[in-house]
Amino acid sequence: KKKYVIKVYFEDTGKEVEIEAESKEEALEAAKRLAEELGLKIKKVEIYP
């Protein structure tokens, strides 16, 4: 089964997080949740198959 690796870059902090997920949708949801939890804004998202 294919996994996606999503790199999320946050504004202000210069922080980046990698998330593995089964689908792009799932990964983007996780990225949004994470940003909310951390109180950060997402600057850029890169998706690698």
Rank of each mutant, 00 (worst) to 15 (best):
E37C: 15
K44D: 03
K2F: 13
A31T: 03
V8C: 03
E46S: 09
K32R: 06
K41N: 07
I42W: 04
K7D: 01
E36H: 13
Y48L: 11
E46A: 08
E37S: 15
E22Q: 04
K7N: 03
A27S: 03
T13V: 10
G14H: 07
E36P: 01
R33F: 10
P49M: 15
K24Y: 12
T13A: 11
P49F: 13
K1R: 15
L40E: 03
I42D: 00
K41R: 13
L40K: 03
L38D: 01
L34I: 07
V5S: 08
Y4W: 09
Y9M: 10
L38W: 13
A21N: 02
E11S: 14
L38S: 07
K43T: 09
K43R: 14
Y48E: 04
F10R: 00
Y48V: 11
R33W: 14
V5M: 08
S23T: 09
E26I: 06
E16F: 12
E16S: 10
S23I: 03
E46H: 13
L34K: 09
K15H: 13
E16C: 04
V17W: 12
R33Y: 14
K41F: 11
E25W: 06
V8R: 00
E11I: 15
P49G: 12
E25L: 05
R33M: 08
L28H: 11
E18Y: 04
I19Y: 12
E18R: 05
E46I: 11
Y4R: 01
E25S: 04
G39C: 06
Y4C: 02
I6A: 04
I19S: 02
K41C: 09
L28P: 01
G14R: 04
K3H: 10
R33N: 07
G14F: 15
E46K: 06
K44L: 05
I42F: 03
E18C: 10
A35M: 03
K44A: 07
I47P: 03
E46N: 06
I19E: 01
E46R: 05
A35Q: 03
R33G: 05
F10D: 01
E29C: 13
E16H: 08
E26L: 11
I19A: 03
V5D: 01
E46C: 05
L34Y: 11
V8D: 00
S23F: 07
E46G: 02
L40Y: 15
I42E: 00
V17C: 06
I6S: 01
L34V: 13
E16M: 07
E36A: 14
T13Q: 08
K41S: 10
A35T: 02
K2T: 12
K2E: 07
K1T: 12
S23P: 00
E16A: 12
V17L: 10
E20K: 04
E37G: 13
K24I: 13
A27L: 09
A35E: 04
E25N: 05
K15E: 09
F10I: 01
G39I: 02
K41W: 04
V8A: 02
E29M: 15
E18L: 12
S23N: 10
E11H: 15
E29V: 13
E20D: 07
K15A: 06
Y9C: 03
I47S: 06
D12Q: 10
K7M: 04
I42M: 03
A31R: 00
I47A: 05
G39W: 02
K15S: 07
A30K: 08
V45M: 12
E20Q: 11
K2C: 11
L40F: 14
A30D: 05
K3R: 07
K1L: 12
